[in-house]
Design a protein around this nucleic acid. Sequence first.
DNA 1: TTTATACAGGACTAAAATGGTACCCATTAG
DNA 2: CTAATGGGTACCATTTTAGTCCTGTATAAA
Lengths: 152, 152
Amino acid sequence: MLKLSRLTDYAAVVMAQIARHPQASHAAADLAEAVQLPHPTVSKTLKMLVKAGLLESQRGVQGGYRLARPASHITAADIIAAIEGPVAMTECSQAEGECDLVATCGVADNWQRVSLAIRTLLESVTLAHLADTTPIKLPVQLPIQSISLATA
Amino acid sequence: MLKLSRLTDYAAVVMAQIARHPQASHAAADLAEAVQLPHPTVSKTLKMLVKAGLLESQRGVQGGYRLARPASHITAADIIAAIEGPVAMTECSQAEGECDLVATCGVADNWQRVSLAIRTLLESVTLAHLADTTPIKLPVQLPIQSISLATA
DNA sequence: TTTATACAGGACTAAAATGGTACCCATTAG
DNA sequence: CTAATGGGTACCATTTTAGTCCTGTATAAA
């Protein structure tokens, strides 16, 4: 299915919610209420986003969460990486490729290229785009077809 | 991580192996040996690929598996779908969007667009590309940047 | 016709990831 | 001080994934 985990999904929704009111400080409870999700789960997600440097937190009374940088400088890839780790389609697309089947595999290099293409795509989508209620236009047909897939 | 499942990975490797010798009929045991993976697991994967219509099987002595159509007409998306089901990043990107949070979500539409872009990308990569030992060239930078992300 | 080969299908188990909860600690405004 | 609010950790339940095994069926060759 190549699906995002549910927590990643939550993270995107919550980030979008914050992005729509960038000035305010958002308490975890308020966010959970706004997006209709269980409070502890939202809280967990928020902590992960802080640790990844996408949110800043303020403790104490009147505390809460704010974006660490403008929504236009936070990408979908950032959010996914914050929850699931770096975007990589196969074991061996990660930094420390620990696959002992490289010899018989034969597709590793090409999967990595595909993986890179997807990562680049996700890096081109910002939180500002996601949070926008008027849907973003992604005229995917043209650019994708224009990718040269011919072998060297 | 947005990672493929291990079985999907196996499927790609096995398909590539078959694609490199399209005329021959490949027994599950031979394939397992060639790619250095446990026989029962490879066998399971092959069955799924048959059910998805990507391979054809022949029973009996001298039987085995063959591609159901040319490698250039089998896409990465096909292989992923055969093992994991249709490519969809979020619950609600599937046909029967069964998410009761649509009202408070606010990012559903945009995720679906991203999902579509990834699917299109995966459909543009064929088994012939994956099986090619000279790596495919995916000059991703240019076309991705050319995608208009401006809101309507 | 018999036999060895090889796929088909399903049941089953073990292991891992995921999602969710609870508890207690640290910080800070008033 | 104290109430509000995030931080961290540990824990449990569920689901998913991976892998194995067994039995049945088709087929080519002897």
